[in-house]
Every structure is written in structure tokens, then in C-alpha cells.
Design a protein around this nucleic acid. Structure first.
Lengths: 211, 211
DNA sequence: TAAAACTTTAGGGAAAACCCTAAAGTTTTA
DNA sequence: TAAAACTTTAGGGTTTTCCCTAAAGTTTTA
């Protein structure tokens, strides 16, 4: 019997997961959490084999949480849940210790397969993503962006302010640095995220849940 | 017995809804669709009493679909499903004929209540949104934006290109108009959406699913 | 500890965005 | 059909973004 916990802020997604997994004899859902905090607290009392972890949470992001949880619970298997099909994004979360990655429009059989796979200490990725990762490692262009969310603390800070419609001057005042510094961060962000302008920065930031 | 169909591109959400509703004797789910097209085709063969309609669909948006469906199926009750708690957004979809509006993090009892309410030809809105609408009509500021998605066809077109990182010049070339025209649309968009710059435009466009 | 990555600053210039007022023709709606 | 809303264009100006090169100090990582 594999025990599973879920972290997702959407009631319906949790229900959907519960339904699919309750039909499987070998899997038992022992808890569900809705926030980063919930999860951290909940895991102090429960020890699921596997955690299905949503990336976008109201009080933080699953990527960082994944890293933290893995430090505390070495044996816990984590399967990331997300809407986004981005190879570099996946690389990041795998690097942070995740044992698998599932798109939210997955179906029951894939979900069950993913759980059994990671339980066997193997990495699980959906077919489409495997192909994309393969293409990527072969240097072939993929339909997903080349975005690597390796943003520095400061860059994330600036990005989140850009999304909030702050101008470079506003940001400079807020962070007590010069406008030139902010512009440097802006340029670096544009480079790193492979976009052309502020519109791209905002779009990517929101799409990838970086802010 | 109330018959219900669901339109949502996320498998899990559909599963979650099915689970919750299957536990209710008076409600029967007769079909589920994943796209605008699916829904239009599916409704030719099925006549549910109620359609639970996601706003953000891969091949279009539920707001326009709602209007179209209501023209063809006068008696069909539509409950909009969305993640966004925006009063003006809700006004728009109600104006387009929706009989109710549910946030995706709803629970079973509210979901069932919503279905029974609209079946009785009454409008259903969650408590929190009712309060916001009341405040709004009293002229009080609410925590949601004042955004009214009354964008013209052309403005939507321009906005979607802005989100795609097109500059005003790019857009002008694409639409065969002058840069000045595009800038006029830009200014109007900034006014209408109550934002300060392109970052705000992109953020709002993505948050409200306008593009 | 040494290398690598990050943060900060700068000058100068080109491009783009933004704001204002104004107006005429087109389409939609009441 | 008349009013309202939409689309188009313009001049002229300010602000902001974006790009380039360059460098020094700080922090993190191997």
C-alpha cells in the first residue's frame, strides 16, 4: 500500500485526484494540504510515501518547497503538478529533488503509473516531456522556451515589481539602488528569460509562476 | 433529476466535478467537453439542463461561448467556472446570459446549491462576490479591480499582440495601420484596464484570460 | 581558498512607450 | 435613422525602456 498526500489550493483538483486514486487498491490518500504552510505543518504528523505537489500555491511556490521538504524528509517522493510544459522548468524542479512531473490535464492511468514509478525510485516524466528533454539535450529546438528559472534573488525581486507596473525609477527608489542598477537587472532578465521586452517579462513571469 | 454537462479542459477539474455531483441523487452528469468546439458539437446531440462552463478554454473563451450558446439554447442554464474574483468580469458574463458564477475552489455544497438555484431560474453567485457586487453598486471600492472587459474587437487584437511582445511598429505592420493608430489603442487599453503601462496590460490580459 | 556568480554603478545613445489634443470616417446599436 | 461607439490618423513632446561596454566590490560555491 502506497500512501499519498496532496498539496493543491484548488478544491476541485484535490477532489479529482482523490477520486482517481481512491479507485486504486494499492494507493491510499492520507492527507491533503492547500498551502505551503499547511504542507510543512501537515508533514510533521504524517509520513506519506509520496507527495503530489502543485507548483503554484497561494503562499509560495512548489519549487522552493520541494527543495526544503527534500532536505527534511529524505525518503519522501515528490511528484510536481503543473500546467506548464516547459523543459527548463522541469529541469529546475528535478534539480530540486522532485521524483516526477505531471501535467494537470493528466489522466488516471498516467497518474497511477507516475506514482508506481516514483515509488520504485525511478523518475517519472510524461512521454511528451521526455521527448522534449531528449531534443533539448541533443541541442534541437523545442516548442517550449529555453527559459531557465535560474533567477537570482534580486532579479526575482525586480521582476515581481515590474509585474506590479513599477518603472525602473520606482524600483530603484524602493530597493535603494540607482536606476542604472535596475536597468541592468532588467536587461539580464530579458536575456535570461529569452524575451524581447517588458511584455515578455510579465508574460513569462505569470506563466511560469515566478512571482 | 437535473442533467448537467461540463466544459473544462482540465481532466482533474472534470473529475472533481463528476465526483462531487455523482454523490447527489437529484443530479446527473450526462456529458463532458474539453473545448469550445467540443461543446458546440456535443450540445447538438445532448440537451443538459445545466452547463458548467470554464471561462478559459484552449480554443476560445467561455464568455463569448456563453453568449452564442444562449442564442441557440434559450432554456440552457449556464454556470460559469473561473479562478478569478472580479466583479466587472462577472458582470460581463452575466450580461452574456450566464445564470451563475462559481470560483474553481468551490466545495460540494456550494456547487450543488448553485445548480439547484439556477435550475429554479434564479441567479447564483457566491457570498463573497455578492458582497463585492453590492459594494460596487453602492460606489464603494472593492478589493477587486474596476476592470470592465468591454474591449473592442480591435483593442483585443492589439492587446493580444502586445502580450506576444510585438512593439507598436510590429503591430502597425501586422494590422496595416499606422503606428499612431496602434498607440491610440494602447492608450485606450491602459485607460480601460486601469493600468499604468505595458506591464499592467500584459498582467491584466493574462489574469483575466482576455487573450 | 580560489573561482564563479551576483550586485552594483556608469555613460551614452537608440528605440519604444506614453500623454495630450484633435478630428474625420465607419460601424453598431437603440 | 440618429446617436453612440469604434477605428483611424496626426503633431509634438516627455518619459521609459532597451542596448552597449565596462568595472569594482560582494557573496556563494566547488
Amino acid at each position: 500500500m502506497i500512501t499519498v498526500a496532496i498539496t493543491d489550493d484548488h478544491f476541485m483538483v484535490v477532489e479529482g485526484l482523490k477520486t482517481m486514486l481512491n479507485q486504486v487498491d494499492t494507493i491510499k490518500i492520507i492527507d491533503a494540504y492547500h498551502t505551503v504552510n499547511d504542507t510543512v505543518e501537515g508533514l510533521k504528523n504524517n509520513s506519506p510515501d509520496i507527495l503530489l505537489l502543485d507548483i503554484n500555491l497561494p503562499d509560495g511556490n512548489g519549487i522552493d518547497l520541494c527543495k526544503i521538504l527534500k532536505q527534511t524528509y529524505k525518503d519522501l517522493k515528490i511528484i510536481a503538478l503543473s500546467n506548464f510544459e516547459d523543459i527548463a522548468f522541469i529541469k529546475q524542479i528535478i534539480k530540486n529533488g522532485a521524483n516526477g512531473y505531471l501535467l494537470k490535464n493528466t489522466n488516471k492511468s498516467e497518474l497511477v503509473l507516475a506514482i508506481h514509478t516514483v515509488q520504485n525510485d525511478e523518475l517519472f516524466l510524461p512521454e511528451t516531456l521526455q521527448r522534449q528533454l531528449l531534443n533539448d539535450s541533443l541541442g534541437k529546438p523545442t516548442n517550449s522556451s529555453f527559459f531557465v528559472p535560474n533567477l537570482t534573488r534580486r532579479e526575482k525581486e525586480v521582476l515581481s515589481l515590474i509585474v506590479k507596473e513599477y518603472t525602473s525609477e520606482d524600483i530603484a527608489n524602493k530597493l535603494f539602488v540607482t536606476v542604472k542598477t535596475v536597468e541592468a537587472h532588467r536587461s539580464n532578465l530579458i536575456q535570461k528569460l529569452s524575451v524581447k521586452n517588458v511584455a515578455g517579462l510579465v508574460r513569462v513571469a505569470l506563466e511560469k509562476g515566478l512571482v
